[in-house]
Amino acid sequence: MSDPITTHLIRISEVFADLIPDILEKLGAEKWKKLGPEYFLIDTANATLLRDGPAAKFIRFQIQVKHSWPCNPEKMDSFIEKAAQATYYKCESYNPQTILVGRLDTSSTKNYYKALASNFRGRALQVFELPESAPKSAEEQDPDKASLFCFVGKGGLFCGMSTPREAGGLHPGGTKYISQNSEDTISRAGAKVAEALHYLAMFRAPLPKYASWLELGASPGGMTSELLKRNYSVTAIDRAALDVRLANHLDLKVIRDDVAAFIPPKGIRYDAILSDMNGPAKLAITNVTRLVDFLKPGGLVITTLKTTGASSVEEIDELEKDVLKLAKEGGLTLITKTHLTYNRQEFTLFFEKV
């Protein structure tokens, strides 16, 4: 007897557009429909593939759909009121800790759906009458308690219950968007590590202020800058220079050296290692694991799995297995992994020292 078919809303980054048909097949999608630039509605009889299958890593965010209203909201009279009432009758019994609403097309410059999402959430919160203790924002959620995530777009309304941790983020669609428009921005890598730390907060407490970071391949300093803004101390290793705006920072030590040759001074122990180095993925993780002895017990490692040269889901999956094997042999335990907004064809991996 086969498992029942369930419907899921999933998000896969456009950077993997060429792999979408193969990804959906390996996710067990028996039927699917594209709802936005990165959103897909899929039917599957094997939902475990969405969590543990070889293509699960490509999913940035997911919910099992508990209520949907396929329609064009722009052409519906009283859409917000009707949608809020229907969602209440369908989902009230699930007792969500809060209600969050996102757009199916976050890249659109049209303000209609941004306003619709905000107004629908406001009305839904009134209809559900959540207790005063309910989280007032996405960041206040308990990552292990279920929330009602809803999405609106030209395809209609789609809602599902999930804990933020299982869904893939505190916000509808995944991690918090970090703007790069500031004049102080050195590179997009700064936004990448800020987003990574935001995601990691669902799995472990943030490192305290003044924690010490060893950053491998730091130039030009985008990630370095973000760590310094958070009052961390950073030892940055790179043969190339860092941006002049970081010169003379009291909490920054720059060492012009080859990462593969660098050896920390005797007695030094770091709270975390950060690596976003280009090059072969297995070489990158080897450069990290040879420095694990200089991490404190329980120390954190954040690194990227570059998939350059891997052109299929199978090749990327094998590359990931090889990297995780090397990390485990080097004394690291995987905490979690994800694909971030600012990741290209790469994944961010989070480890702890065993």
Rank of each mutant, 00 (worst) to 15 (best):
L104S: 05
R11Q: 11
A167P: 04
G174N: 04
A191F: 02
A281M: 07
Q126L: 06
D77S: 12
K145S: 10
T333E: 14
K154Q: 07
Q97V: 02
R344S: 12
P208C: 09
A146K: 10
E314P: 06
R165Y: 02
T235K: 02
L197F: 10
I99D: 01
D322G: 02
I255S: 01
S311N: 15
G102S: 07
G217S: 04
A310P: 05
D293N: 13
Y113F: 15
A146Q: 09
E30V: 10
I178E: 07
H198Y: 12
S137V: 02
S312G: 06
G217L: 01
E14N: 06
D3Y: 15
R165A: 02
R121P: 02
K282N: 12
G279K: 03
I178P: 07
S68P: 03
L326W: 03
R188Y: 09
D243Q: 09
R11T: 00
E92I: 14
L24D: 05
K209V: 02
Q85K: 15
L246N: 10
C159S: 14
F149T: 03
F294H: 09
S93Y: 11
Y112D: 07
A134G: 07
F151L: 00
F294P: 05
L332S: 13
I10V: 10
L130T: 01
W69L: 13
L24E: 02
K192A: 07
R230E: 12
T175G: 15
L283P: 04
D317L: 11
P70S: 12
